[in-house]
Design a binder for these strands. Structure first.
Lengths: 152, 152
DNA sequence: TGACCAACATTGGTGGGACCAACGATAACC
DNA sequence: GGTTATCGTTGGTCCCACCAATGTTGGTCA
């Protein structure tokens, strides 16, 4: 296990990129453990959430909306389809496309994963007060927005 | 590329674990690109930094000090040794151990990577003021400490 | 002293996540 | 109608985190 103990080299201990990595690693462990218990992984959740929010979409659109590579979308959708959580159907108006639809089972599974995830947020940010949590998300959001903009 | 654009599902856009992941992914990209340009990767830096800070160590100690799995330490040290950045010598007082030493080349390389890394910190946190950066590192540190404690 | 257990280095895996290149099929554009 | 772009798909790469097993050596204790 990736230990966050006190014996890390000092130059790393205070580098923001290192701290972020540590927190991210920890949160990733929490999330993937939680998802694994529900038979899912990160890509599955992202795709289901995108389908729920944007409605039936092509695979390419899903890729764009989730930041997942097209090729990885294919694999993850195969896994979701094998569990009847999504359905693939050809788009009659554009024969290159598949239209991906959330099944009722998929919706239920998404709700389940949503619960897992909100539980984890609390776990992760347990030591912070509500206003500190807002501070943290605010700072992170600004960092993200900055880099998103400079890449567009 | 893992896009941080505005079209992510809403439920993800505000989840701290998601934000942390995004920032971590971005920082990881910056770091690994920077390190790759110098012919290194994360594990190499961590090991070199630990050697520099704690002095010659056994591989097991390095693993403990960096949070890297013993088996991954072996592989990374092989790579470092192949570039003459570290040296492996048997510990005369404990024949189970290898004593790993930083070579002069290793020190130089570490200094180089240090520069890369500090440059990246500035890049990563560009949108934040100095006091905001302190806030962020403070919050992250508290999260880390909390979870480190609850695991020991 | 001998049995037993712990620590060490090493091998050889697993899996998730983020990429990239190339292909055939189709659609859109000029 | 020929070029360009998009779509789904295949098949790779790399990094990071982690696990199990093995043979060797050290330490303990009965």
């Amino acid at each position: 296990m990736m230990t966050a103990d006190a014996r890390t080299p000092a130059r790393l201990r205070h580098a923001p990129s290192w701290l972020i990595n540590l927190v991210s690693a920890h949160s990733h462990r929490l999330v993937s453990d939680g998802f694994a218990a529900a038979g899912a992984r990160g890509y599955h959740y992202r795709l289901l959430a995108a389908l729920d929010e944007y409605g039936p979409s092509s695979q390419a659109a899903l890729g764009r909306n989730t930041g997942i590579d097209r090729s990885d979308v294919v694999a993850a959708l195969n896994e979701l389809a094998a569990k009847n959580l999504i359905e693939r159907s050809p788009d009659p108006s554009d024969r290159r496309r598949n239209i991906i639809t959330l099944t009722p089972d998929g919706s239920r599974h998404l709700a389940e994963l949503d619960e897992v995830l909100t539980g984890i947020q609390n776990d992760l940010l347990a030591p912070l007060t509500p206003s500190e949590r807002d501070q943290l998300t605010g700072l992170l959001t600004r960092v993200i927005d900055h880099h998103a903009k400079s890449r567009s």
